[in-house]
Design a protein around this nucleic acid. Structure first.
Lengths: 386, 386
DNA sequence: ACCGTTTCTTCCTACTATGAAGAAAATGCT
DNA sequence: AGCATTTTCTTCATAGTAGGAAGAAACGGT
């Protein structure tokens, strides 16, 4: 009747107290960037005596850098000795798997990329990822805090499952293998989830705890951040909004492609744009459609259809999770200001709660920032208390 | 650049360590019901020496009861002295506001109701709630851990907003007022959210961390539990699935009633049932429809329409949040086994991930169990560590 | 040059986390 | 019946520490 998993250690052990204090200080410093010991005392609640020793250790380890007296607001009293958080003390590897390509970037916890490499995927995936990370990290390996691997399609428990448009086949859990090889936490997730996480920590969602990122590309997917946490779903399929049954009774669904995305993805839009304006298939189909709509009644009508469809998707999501803010990414971010305003109006008319629609702002950097937030969360996670 | 809210206390203070130890033991005991000190050592990680003193305190306070030697599995050695968790040490008040009625129940943390009262709402709501709670708790007031207030419609930050079908008007935050009067934590939430929480802790969702409860009554609403936590939404409007735009271009929406629920709520179904089989309006319209479908082709066709619509709603929710399990409540729970199986088939055919459809099992008790879980969570919450 | 103020460091001690030792309570064996 | 062994629970002892107090440092103002 009492089932034991991992035997817990004492929640008030000395080791744990030490970790909690370190985490408090590191988190406060990472967020403030530059601050004094007095600031740390206020932010963490730790007494000055405790902080003296702790800061000494963190300076020795390279997390904090003494920066000399600061321009404090006090007119009297001993000037504060300012400390600067060293983002280079925490490196993160962000790996993107987009068969046939693999991209690897090493960044510090500020998001500054210090090394990167792109190559064709060949041979064993786990070996390739480990090799790239180790080569790029070079002699900064002790500062590597974690690895985040972005994949198209749904990941479940670290196993990569079929992504419809790229033919990635299910492999043994690569996250666990890489973690075993590199000895740091490794997180594998859908690239749209990583984008959502990235916009949350460093982009258009920095000031909210809840958002939905709508990504329109070959498929249509959404990343959800709810209460500050990415929502993956019971089977890892949260955000599969391409499968929403919004257009009544269409039976165009085929394996791996949802009915909604079959009609409203960037691919589908590109086909219509070519039909409306014969010529080469546009690289940016939504930009092209917006351009055509300026002078073509048919294009304008089609743009209205697209906006209506995407609005219904957003309203559906608003009804279910009430994210408060929706970020448009990929082809959806190509809408101009007028179209974006139209979209906002359509959503506001029917959504049951205030739902703000904006463009995502990080673009290609979103996955990287998402990877950083994932890796740092995994690196310093304390076991939870019931 | 450094913004201070409430000055934090030390995360490793002696007071906090004491609270953490108490919480660990109380939580483990509440879950196990009967266990020994050795069990507590294994479950919490606290050393035996620590537990001796702590258990003595909790026995003195009435949380634990000494139960004498247990029938242990050991063949030798000192027998375990079993302890029993005392649910009466933790009382919870669950208040239901359904204008013009108010219902109040006092229950222990097992869900056993020890007192209840229903009356017409008259006079000041805060005074009425406080009066009922105090009268029912009587001299067990020291054991009152919290109050949960269930309201129809969306609650936001403790303020009750308009519930479409019952005309409840926005009031000043009643949760804060009641909390101030009673001196215990008070949570106010939508009754469907409380149902979902209740099924999660004590009903059809006990074995999962994620579920969606679909409640069909005068309106249609959903309660979401994601990663063990109720999802309320940025504006408190998560689960407003009655507003889903699933039936194309209907313009039947009017103030406060969503387009989907206008067509597929229990009210709408009752109207059609009367049209199909003239007579008195049925008390249980879905049961009646299922019965009529046995012998009427028209009724059977309409039942198929209802199942199809509800399935599209469930598929929409599965696409967005991937709950893994959907519980049917209210009128939706009136479906018979055959209809439930049809519903499951429809959902399985189109949902992007495995989505199990079941009936909720707690019925009227769901809100109570939800209230218990809310109140206990609020009563023993520790401030989080960054 | 001195005083007052604020920040940071050192000192000190009451408290405590927990290992070790001891006591209690059983079963099994002879 | 008595003893050995085992397991559980209690008591004891101590190394470590959380944090208050005292002291030192570093300014600005007079």
């Amino acid at each position: 009747m009492i089932v034991m998993e991992k035997t817990p250690t004492s929640p008030v052990s000395r080791e744990r107290s030490r970790e909690i204090k370190r985490l408090s200080v590191i988190s406060a410093a990472r967020e403030a960037r530059v601050l004094s010991r007095a600031d740390l005392a206020e932010l963490t609640g730790l007494p000055p005596a405790t902080l003296t020793a702790l800061v000494r250790d963190l300076v020795a380890e390279g997390y904090l850098i003494e920066r000399g007296p600061g321009s404090g607001t006090n007119t009297t009293g001993r000037p504060r000795a300012m400390l600067e958080f060293n983002p280079r003390a925490e490196l993160v590897a962000a790996v993107s798997l987009e068969p046939p390509r693999i991209t690897c970037e090493i960044a510090d916890s500020n998001g500054a990329v210090i090394a990167h490499r792109t190559a064709r995927l060949a041979g064993d995936m786990v070996e390739t990822v480990c090799q790239f990370v180790l080569e790029l990290v070079d002699d900064a390996r002790p500062s590597l805090r974690g690895v985040a691997i972005a994949v198209p399609g749904v990941s479940v428990d670290g196993a990569v499952r079929l992504a419809p448009s790229v033919g990635l086949v299910e492999a043994r859990p690569i996250g666990q293998s890489v973690q075993h090889e590199l000895g740091v936490p490794v997180i594998v997730d859908n690239d749209v989830n990583l984008m959502a996480a990235g916009e949350r920590v460093a982009g258009a969602g920095k000031d909210v705890d809840d958002l939905l990122l709508l990504h329109v590309a070959d498929g249509i997917g959404a990343g959800l951040v709810l209460d500050g946490k990415v929502r993956r779903g019971a089977s890892g399929a949260a955000g599969e909004v391409g499968f929403l049954p919004l257009d009544g009774f269409t039976d165009r669904a085929y394996s791996g492609v949802g009915p909604f995305e079959a009609m409203w993805s960037a691919n589908a839009i590109a086909e219509r744009v070519v039909a409306l304006h014969p010529g080469r298939r546009p690289e940016s189909p939504v930009s092209e459609l917006v351009r055509l709509a300026e002078s073509s009644v048919a294009a304008r009508a089609y743009l209205d259809e697209v906006l209506g469809a995407w609005a219904r998707l957003i309203i559906s999501c608003a009804c279910v999770v009430d994210p408060g803010r929706v970020l448009l990414s990929g082809a959806a971010a190509q809408l101009d200001d007028a179209a974006l305003a139209r979209m906002q109006d359509l959503v506001s008319a029917k959504a049951p709660a205030a739902t703000e629609v904006r463009r995502a702002v990080l673009g290609d950097q979103a996955v990287l920032h998402g990877a950083i937030s994932y890796a740092l969360s995994a690196a310093v996670r304390l076991p939870s208390i019931p």
